[in-house]
Amino acid sequence: MRTTMRLRSSTLVWVVLLTISTFAQQHNGLVPSRTLLNQLSGSANYLTMEELWFQQTLDHFSPYDHRRFQQRYYEFFDYFRLPDGPIFLKICGESSCNGIANDYISVLAKKFGAAVVSLEHRYYGKSSPFNSLKTENLRYLSSKQALYDLAVFRQYYQKSLDLKLNRSNVENPWFVFGISYSGALSAWFRLKFPHLTCGSLASSAVVHAVYNFTEFDRQVNTILALFFPLIYASITFF
């Protein structure tokens, strides 16, 4: 009987700690929720993981700096309605982008006959301009540079698609998607480049920066206050 209680209490501790860890990581932007779930399940559900590359401009705001770097992206064409189907641009945020996840965007792509492309954020995953991330090399890491990355990529990809389809001066409708930070990029992209996209889905987008955001601490405090008694009660079984 006591062994059973220990097993149950151990399981409860694990569930509680996992819940707190998941909450903390998601709300601090350390690990996106889908990435975390994939790690826990031991399997990643992607539409594609085939890496593609193009030459991205390092500094979009300098007329003298012509350096470029390799930026990784992915494409998925299984649902694409030739030749005028929409293109869904899924923005990757502050983590490594290892493919196009099989999520709600794939459902929408299938419904509307869309192609799906996804661009890795500069400085993350395999899209870092420098081998070293020392402070002086981080001067080109900003949301402004990232927005222009998306714009340049969008133009590059549209031209590439036109070449594949043997056509010219044709524009497919583009829609951008993002969650959290990448959701903010999605909203800002629509505002900054309205001629490059027909719409934007900005899920949980942090478009408004709050200085001294004490409400976040209160939220975490509430979670800890809720789960700490459960952890303490579970430990007493030992």
Results as ranks from 00 to 15, higher is better:
2 R>Q: 10
5 M>V: 09
6 R>F: 02
6 R>Y: 01
7 L>Q: 09
8 R>C: 13
21 S>A: 14
25 Q>S: 15
27 H>R: 13
29 G>Y: 08
30 L>T: 15
30 L>I: 15
31 V>W: 04
31 V>T: 13
35 T>E: 11
36 L>V: 02
41 S>K: 14
44 A>E: 15
46 Y>R: 02
48 T>R: 13
56 Q>S: 08
57 T>K: 12
62 S>C: 04
63 P>Y: 12
66 H>F: 10
76 F>M: 01
79 Y>W: 12
80 F>W: 11
91 I>D: 00
92 C>E: 05
93 G>M: 02
98 N>Y: 05
99 G>W: 02
100 I>F: 01
100 I>K: 00
105 I>S: 06
105 I>W: 01
116 V>G: 03
121 H>A: 04
121 H>K: 08
128 S>H: 06
129 P>W: 00
131 N>M: 12
132 S>Q: 01
136 E>A: 08
138 L>D: 05
138 L>Y: 05
139 R>C: 10
147 L>T: 07
147 L>N: 07
149 D>G: 10
150 L>C: 08
152 V>T: 15
157 Y>S: 03
158 Q>M: 15
159 K>D: 14
164 K>F: 13
164 K>D: 11
167 R>L: 15
170 V>K: 11
177 F>Y: 00
191 L>A: 04
192 K>I: 08
193 F>Y: 09
193 F>K: 09
195 H>L: 14
198 C>T: 15
198 C>M: 09
198 C>K: 15
199 G>K: 14
200 S>T: 05
201 L>N: 11
207 V>Y: 02
207 V>L: 06
208 H>E: 01
212 N>C: 13
214 T>W: 01
215 E>M: 00
215 E>L: 01
222 T>N: 07
223 I>C: 03
223 I>V: 12
224 L>S: 04
229 P>M: 01
232 Y>D: 13
235 I>A: 12
236 T>F: 07
